[in-house]
Deep mutational scan, measured.
Amino acid sequence: MPEGSASLQLAVGDRVVYPNQGVCRVSAIDVKEVAGQKLTFVTMRREEDGAVVMVPEGKVLAIGVRKVASAE
Score class of each variant (00 low, 15 high):
Ala28Trp: 05
Arg15Tyr: 15
Val31Ile: 11
Gly64Phe: 08
Leu8Trp: 11
Arg46Ala: 04
Ser5Tyr: 11
Lys67Asp: 06
Asp14Ala: 03
Gln9Ala: 10
Ile63Ser: 12
Ala62Leu: 10
Val55Asp: 03
Asp30Phe: 15
Asp30Arg: 08
Lys67His: 08
Arg46Val: 03
Val34Asp: 04
Val53Ala: 03
Arg15Glu: 05
Met44Gly: 00
Gly50Lys: 02
Asp14Arg: 01
Ile29Met: 04
Asp30Glu: 14
Ala28Ser: 14
Arg46Pro: 00
Val34Arg: 05
Ala35Thr: 04
Pro19Lys: 07
Met44Asn: 00
Val12His: 01
Phe41His: 01
Ala62Phe: 07
Arg25Asp: 01
Ala6Lys: 13
Met44Asp: 00
Pro19Tyr: 08
Val68Thr: 06
Lys59Leu: 15
Arg15Ile: 14
Val60Asp: 04
Leu61Pro: 06
Val16Lys: 00
Gly50Ala: 03
Ala51Lys: 11
Val52Cys: 03
Val31Cys: 00
Met54Gly: 02
Glu47Trp: 03
Gly36Cys: 01
Gly4Leu: 10
Val42Gln: 00
Glu47Tyr: 04
Pro56Cys: 06
Val12Glu: 02
Arg66Glu: 10
Val52Glu: 12
Val60Leu: 15
Leu61Thr: 11
Gly64Asp: 06
Leu10Val: 09
Gln9Ser: 10
Gly64Asn: 06
Arg45Tyr: 12
Ala28Pro: 00
Leu61Gln: 13
Gly58Tyr: 15
Ile63Arg: 05
Glu48Gly: 08
Ala28Gly: 08
Lys67Cys: 13
Ala62Ser: 09
Gly22Val: 05
Asp49Tyr: 02
Arg45Phe: 09
Val42Ala: 01
Met44Cys: 04
Met54Val: 15
Leu8Phe: 10
Asp49Pro: 01
Val53Cys: 05
Gly36Asp: 03
Ala69Arg: 08
Val23Asn: 04
Cys24Tyr: 15
Ala51Met: 12
Ile29Gln: 00
Val55Cys: 04
Val17Ile: 14
Ala71Trp: 09
Ile29Pro: 00
Gly22Met: 06
Ala51Ser: 08
Ala51Gly: 10
Leu61Tyr: 10
Lys67Ala: 07
Ser5Arg: 08
Lys67Asn: 05
Val65Pro: 03
Gly36Arg: 03
Pro56Phe: 09
Val65Thr: 05
Asn20Gly: 15
Thr43Pro: 00
Val23Trp: 06
Thr40Gln: 04
Thr43Ser: 07
Ala35Leu: 10
Val16Pro: 00
Thr43Leu: 07
Val34Met: 06
Val55Gly: 03
Lys32Met: 14
Gly50His: 04
Val53His: 05
Ile63Leu: 15
Val68Ala: 07
Lys67Arg: 08
Val23Tyr: 14
Thr40Leu: 09
Asp49Met: 02
Leu39Lys: 07
Val17Asn: 07
Arg25Tyr: 12
Ala6Ser: 12
Asp30Ser: 13
Val26Phe: 01
Ser27Glu: 15
Arg25His: 04
Ile29Gly: 00
Glu3Ala: 13
Arg45His: 10
Met54His: 08
Glu3Asp: 12
Met1Trp: 10
Val31Asp: 04
Glu57Cys: 07
Glu48Ser: 15
Val34Pro: 01
Gln9Gly: 09
Ala71Gly: 11
Ala51Arg: 11
Gln37Gly: 07
Leu8Ile: 09
Ser7Arg: 12
Val17Gln: 07
Val31Gln: 08
Gly58Pro: 07
Gly64Ser: 06
Val34Lys: 04
Gln21Asp: 03
Glu47Val: 06
Tyr18Val: 15
Gly4Val: 13
Arg45Met: 11
Gly13Glu: 01
Lys32Arg: 14
Val65Gly: 05
Arg46Lys: 04
Ala71Pro: 11
Gln37Glu: 11
Val68Pro: 07
Glu57Tyr: 15
Val31Ala: 04
Val65Tyr: 05
Lys32Pro: 01
Ala11Phe: 10
Ala35Pro: 02
Ala71Lys: 10
Glu72Asp: 12
Ser5Pro: 13
Lys38Phe: 13
Ser27Gln: 13
Arg45Thr: 13
Gly4Arg: 07
Val17Arg: 06
Arg45Trp: 09
Gly22Gln: 05
Gln9Tyr: 11
Pro19His: 06
Asp30Gln: 10
Leu8Glu: 07
Thr40Met: 08
Gly13Lys: 01
Tyr18Gly: 05
Asp49Val: 02
Ala35Phe: 09
Gln37Trp: 05
Asn20Met: 09
Thr43Phe: 11
Tyr18Asp: 03
Ser70Pro: 13
Pro56Asn: 06
Gly50Leu: 03
Cys24Val: 04
Val55Met: 09
Pro19Asp: 07
Val23Ser: 03
Asn20Ile: 05
Gly13Asn: 04
Gly13Gln: 01
Met1Pro: 12
Gln21Glu: 08
Asn20Trp: 06
Val52Pro: 04
Ser27Ile: 15
Gln9Cys: 03
Glu33Phe: 12
Ser7His: 11
Tyr18Asn: 02
Lys38Met: 13
Gly64Glu: 06
Ser7Asp: 10
Leu39Gln: 09
Glu47Thr: 03
Lys32His: 12
Glu57Thr: 07
Gly50Tyr: 03
Glu48His: 12
Glu33Asn: 08
Glu57Trp: 15
Tyr18Met: 14
Glu57Met: 15
Val68Asn: 05
Gly64Tyr: 08
Gln21Tyr: 15
Arg25Gln: 08
Pro2Cys: 03
Gln37Ile: 15
Val55Phe: 08
Ala11Tyr: 09
Val34Trp: 08
Leu61Phe: 08
Ile63Trp: 07
Leu10Ile: 08
Met44Glu: 00
Ala35Asn: 15
Lys67Phe: 10
Val68Asp: 06
Gly22Ile: 05
Ser70Asn: 11
Val16Asn: 00
Gly64Met: 12
Lys38Ser: 08
Glu48Asn: 09
Glu3Arg: 04
Cys24Thr: 00
Leu10Ser: 01
Ser27Arg: 05
Met54Ser: 10
Ala62Trp: 06
Gly50Ile: 03
Gln9Thr: 11
Met54Ala: 05
Gln21His: 15
Ala28Thr: 05
Arg45Ala: 06
Val12Tyr: 02
Ser7Lys: 13
Ala6Trp: 09
Pro19Gln: 07
Gly4Cys: 05
Val17Cys: 00
Glu47Gln: 04
Leu10Met: 04
Val65Gln: 04
Gln37Arg: 11
Gly36Gln: 02
Val16Asp: 01
Val31Pro: 02
Ser7Trp: 08
Cys24Ile: 01
Asp14Tyr: 02
Ile63Lys: 07
Val31Glu: 08
Glu57His: 09
Ser5Asp: 09
Val23Asp: 01
Met1Asn: 13
Val34Ser: 05
Gln21Ser: 07
Val34Gly: 02
Val26Arg: 00
Leu10Arg: 00
Glu3Met: 11
Thr43Asn: 01
Val52Phe: 12
Val68Ile: 15
Leu39Val: 15
Glu72Asn: 11
Gly22His: 04
Gly13Ser: 01
Ala51Glu: 08
Lys38Glu: 06
Lys38Ala: 07
Gln37Lys: 14
Ser70Gly: 11
Val34Ile: 11
Gly50Met: 04
Val26Trp: 01
Gly36Ala: 02
Met1Cys: 03
Glu33Met: 13
Ser70Thr: 11
Asn20His: 09
Ala62Arg: 07
Gly22Cys: 03
Tyr18Phe: 14
Val31Leu: 06
Glu47Phe: 04
Leu39Ser: 05
Met54Lys: 06
Ala6Phe: 11
Gln21Leu: 15
Glu57Ser: 15
Gln9Leu: 09
Val60Gly: 05
Gly36Ser: 03
Asp30Leu: 13
Arg66Tyr: 14
Ile29Lys: 02
Arg46Met: 04
Pro19Cys: 01
Gly36Trp: 03
Arg15Val: 12
Ala51Leu: 11
Met54Phe: 08
Pro19Phe: 07
Thr40Arg: 15
Ala35Trp: 09
Pro56Gln: 10
Phe41Ile: 13
Lys38Gln: 09
Lys32Val: 14
Ala62Gly: 08
Met1Tyr: 13
Ala51Asp: 05
Gly36Val: 01
Thr43Ala: 04
Gly58Lys: 14
